[in-house]
Design a protein around this nucleic acid. Sequence first.
DNA 1: AGAGAATACGAGCGTTTACTCGTGTTATTG
DNA 2: CAATAACACGAGTAAACGCTCGTATTCTCT
Lengths: 204, 204
Amino acid sequence: MTPTDTGTPRRQERGRRRMEQILHAAADEFARLGYEAATTNGIAAAAGISPGSLYQFFSGKADIARALAGLYREQLDAAQSAAFTREDLAGLPVPDVVAAVIGPLVEFNIAHPGFKALFARTDMPAELAEAVAPIHAVIHGKVGGLLAVLLPELSTKDLERATSVAIQLVRGMMPLIVAADPAARPALVTDLRNVLVGYLDTLR
Amino acid sequence: MTPTDTGTPRRQERGRRRMEQILHAAADEFARLGYEAATTNGIAAAAGISPGSLYQFFSGKADIARALAGLYREQLDAAQSAAFTREDLAGLPVPDVVAAVIGPLVEFNIAHPGFKALFARTDMPAELAEAVAPIHAVIHGKVGGLLAVLLPELSTKDLERATSVAIQLVRGMMPLIVAADPAARPALVTDLRNVLVGYLDTLR
DNA sequence: AGAGAATACGAGCGTTTACTCGTGTTATTG
DNA sequence: CAATAACACGAGTAAACGCTCGTATTCTCT
């Protein structure tokens, strides 16, 4: 009785490159058309491969979204690691902390237009919500940790709510910032920072 | 040569009732599944009619969205008329004005779950964006007029930006409020008001 | 070199969905 | 009371989409 061959195959170098191509193409298609309107055949074509090849690496559109979310999570982690090291931030004034977090985040969203197609949505299909749940949890945890330092006397419940609200404010404004004319962006980013600082002030 | 029979038929009472049923059913389906996932056959079934009958009144899903947007516009207009009469507001403090606008708006969103499926989205298919463009324009105009009274010394450009930002903040937070446990809503609504008041304060 | 695994192809299958069309029923109009 | 228009039906159609499968090529490992 030979061992049943479930489980992913041992990828070759070629395969790993293909997976990157596919994820890159998928990010473009998601950004251009939105998650629902993007098609697997379209992603395959954009990646320069056949539909069949795509399914050698991913089990479907939701799986691609999951993998892309994981990729974004790593990249965002790298881009934000500095901003979220609590130790340095303990003494800093709130506006500086907000600026340190928002700056790189805006840059990341501009550089990765596919990101907002997956995350900055208020209503998503269940399959997509499930795919991005892990990174949402990570973000929630990080922001929650940060707010706990900035607002130490807040109750757990209030802290939880403040975290959700702060994240939602950023998610709401980010598409506006990304879509705006580059010349108009700085003012919008300043507004976003002011919004957050103003909100956090009311919680003291 | 008989005159070509383009143009909508002269509706009977029965037909007008059907159109209302359809729009009501569509609002439910949009709220339950989202615009894209909602199907015309599903809307027809929810309205208790056949697919063919639906197309006697609407030319397609986008047309239903357009009509529903128009209906919401009327209803929202009625619900908000008091809050937006500038004369009474000229002297009032900013927090009171914000409360007067946000209160009914939150009620409206809770009472009409289909509303946010059409409006509180950051990325929509082009056909949907086109369908809701008129009411967006109306809202933008009203909020802009209000802000012009509250912040008289703002430049046109700054006023324009502030209007977009304020609307976007509300659009971002509304799904959170509607989806929240009713007991948790008041705190979220307070947060939303504080966010707006805090933001407007930074623009003085 | 030979075998097995990974990669690649693309026509096409099954399903879903928006929408049509032929036909029949109810209401209005002259 | 016709005659015409509005309303209603629902099986069916064409297109789109996610995904499969048979087959062929390339890589890895012994």
